[in-house]
Write a protein that binds this DNA or RNA. Structure first.
Lengths: 207, 207
DNA sequence: TTGATTTTCTGAACGCTGTCCAGTACATTA
DNA sequence: TAATGTACTGGACAGCGTTCAGAAAATCAA
């Protein structure tokens, strides 16, 4: 009697339909444009139904972003498995991170540019690591790459815990500025990315 | 007959009272917590009165942030006038920028982490340079510092237009991540700032 | 001092938001 | 067929930014 399975499969499917409808709105116009009522209209359900599948709007959007960042993880993992010098892998990862953020600006902003200021009035210790686990996993992959380069003696001696955070901040800085301030008279994006990656590698170089 | 002057002075005063009330709310809890109705309550005027002094909520908050960043400009200008080696001034400016952002997280986020995604659905060419002129002036001061270091032959040859943007992105990255992700297991802030500034100077060093 | 004019301010409304909950409608089981 | 349990909804609540006709107040002219 597969009734149970069918029902839970149907639940799963509706959950996904909600996510997909929300994603369409979100990708176009960002967090502000994802309104529960608009999503409900799109899938032809009542707004309140959405709350049977997601605790609140925040959880819904977080899950959308999490899925996106899982893709970045895969990209980074693929790069790390290439047969290249640690520094080259490093450079490729840094570039991939930035380009990913630029390709998915709204996901990026929600994941890394706003969370705390919104959560600060909620219950004290909501597990933030869980909420944006995929985003943080991407950081950890960068950290591993740095550790690998250090182990291979490809860079100067560093404190990996400290420097990985610095490096993350550096690539995040370019990504978030390009995404947030689209009207600033930026230099060519390719040039900027290259310059940033070069700058980071230069600061890690031996001597 | 100084009636005219008195009246325009009174207008100016009310405008300032609105800004101050808004600032209190804003500093505590950020953009979301600045509601026109709350400000109106605080100064004992009707909500609609505020619209006689500010075009909309965005303009009000921008003016608050602009004032704050004017202070950063002064700090940076003061540093640039110190009698120090260009690299040392540079380091001091970078550090001052980061520390300023950390001291005024909500101002920082509004000025550099959100603007475009909110403005993208408004009239095409609102003069963004004007809107956050003070914030951008701070960038320009950093750029000047870099130019000065280059002129003094204190750093390797660089494209100042390009590298100044890269450097800005680097310090912005640390500032914004620390501000936005307060619950992430960061290394000690002092260490991080020092590491970032060192990293930047190292990447600019000759050889 | 009175009346007309200009400036400042307000109350009520519009349309939107996230969220909750009592109650309906339906599918499954006995 | 009747009882049970799940899925869903309509309507409400409290809040938001913003607008605008009209009230109130201040100024000016006579």
């Amino acid at each position: 009697m597969g009734t149970q399975e069918r029902r839970s499969r149907e639940k799963q499917e509706l959950r996904q339909r909600i996510q997909e409808a929300a994603t369409e709105l979100f990708v176009m116009d960002g967090y502000q444009n994802v309104s529960i009522r608009k999503i409900a209209d799109r899938i032809e359900y009542a707004p309140s139904t959405i709350y049977l599948y997601f605790k609140d709007k925040e959880e819904l959007v977080q899950s959308i972003c999490n899925d996106m960042f899982a893709e970045l993880s895969e990209i980074l993992i693929a790069i790390r498995q290439l047969d290249l010098a640690p520094n080259q892998k490093m450079a490729k990862c840094l570039r991939a991170y930035i380009e990913f953020g630029l390709a998915h600006p709204n996901h990026y902003v929600v994941t890394f540019c706003t969370p705390e200021l919104q959560y600060q009035h909620q219950q004290p210790n909501v597990d933030h690591d869980q909420i944006m686990s995929a985003g943080l996993q991407c950081f950890d992959l960068l950290r591993q790459g740095l550790q690998e380069a250090l182990n291979a003696d490809a860079i100067r001696p560093i404190n990996v815990d400290l420097t990985s955070q610095t490096v993350w901040a550096q690539i995040h800085g370019l990504t978030s500025l390009l995404v947030s301030m689209q009207k600033f008279p930026w230099q060519d994006r390719e040039l900027l990315i290259t310059d940033m990656v070069d700058s980071i590698l230069r600061s890690l170089a031996k001597n």
